[in-house]
């Protein structure tokens, strides 16, 4: 049951925001399009990992690549949300993080280890971005639910705050037990919640767009 949930149900739930995102694609702002691209990329990576596992290949190297793309996409997303003056520092941050990921993959955690040095740092930075957004928008004069990015931000904050703890301790879970199953189930459930929140955020984009009828 657990295997089915973790291997099929949760990765498949990624299709919900993808479907809604693609349906509303022309209404999506650039930040949301970056997120949609990232979710599609994550689903493809999941699929590739499943195939590799079926053929008994190590999937760790994929995770190194995934961490780079994940951080790049999410930082680009927030660079579109925050003021323009933060764009250059954020691009520099992406460059530094990606360089660190490559060094980590080539020289530090290069064999069968999970990338427990890079991914928690990435998760931590994303949590900081999410908190900054909440602080920045705390005094907005509109209903919380009417801001479609609030849903996305909540999904990211929940997943990456919990994920931070999981990413640090990846290498403890190499041996399977009932407890590691609980950890992964919890992680996957938060991921599922994140996908649902993304889907709500994407669906809100349509309702906030006014279409001018052709005369």
């Amino acid at each position: 049951m657990f295997d089915f949930y973790a291997t099929y149900i949760v990765p498949a739930s990624g299709l919900i925001p993808i479907f809604i995102g693609l349906k509303n694609y022309r209404f999506l702002p650039s930040a949301f399009r970056i997120l949609l691209g990232f979710i599609i990329f994550g689903s493809v990576i999941n699929l590739v990992a499943l195939v590799m596992l079926a053929y008994n290949y190590y999937t760790v190297s994929i995770l190194h690549l995934y961490a780079m793309v994940e951080f790049t996409c999410l930082t680009l997303l927030f660079s579109r949300i925050f003021e323009k003056k933060w764009q250059i520092p954020m691009y520099i941050l992406i460059f530094l993080f990606d360089a660190f990921c490559i060094i980590n993959y080539l020289f530090i955690q290069n064999k069968i280890e999970f990338n427990t040095y890079t991914r928690p740092i990435g998760a931590f930075v994303v949590v900081v971005f999410c908190m900054c957004y909440i602080i920045k928008n705390g005094n907005e004069e509109k209903k919380w639910t009417d801001d479609n990015f609030n849903w996305i931000n909540t999904g990211l904050l929940m997943y990456y705050a919990v994920g931070f703890v999981v990413f640090i301790s990846f290498n403890f879970f190499l041996k399977r037990s009932i407890f590691t199953d609980i950890v992964w189930t919890f992680h996957d459930t938060v991921l599922l919640i994140e996908y649902i929140l993304f889907a709500i955020g994407f669906s809100k984009c349509r309702s906030q767009t006014t279409t001018i009828p052709r005369s």
Binding site: N137, W144, L157, A161, V162, F172, F179, I182
Partner: peptide, 28 residues
């Protein structure tokens, strides 16, 4: 270690949820 990690995950999840609920209520 796994139990401690589970506790930490649950704790972080509760904290983050409480923070989000607080900010939603505050903004509203």
């Amino acid at each position: 270690t796994a139990v401690l990690i589970i506790l930490a995950m649950v704790g972080v999840f509760i904290l983050v949820s409480a923070f989000i609920i607080y900010s939603v209520r505050n903004q509203n």
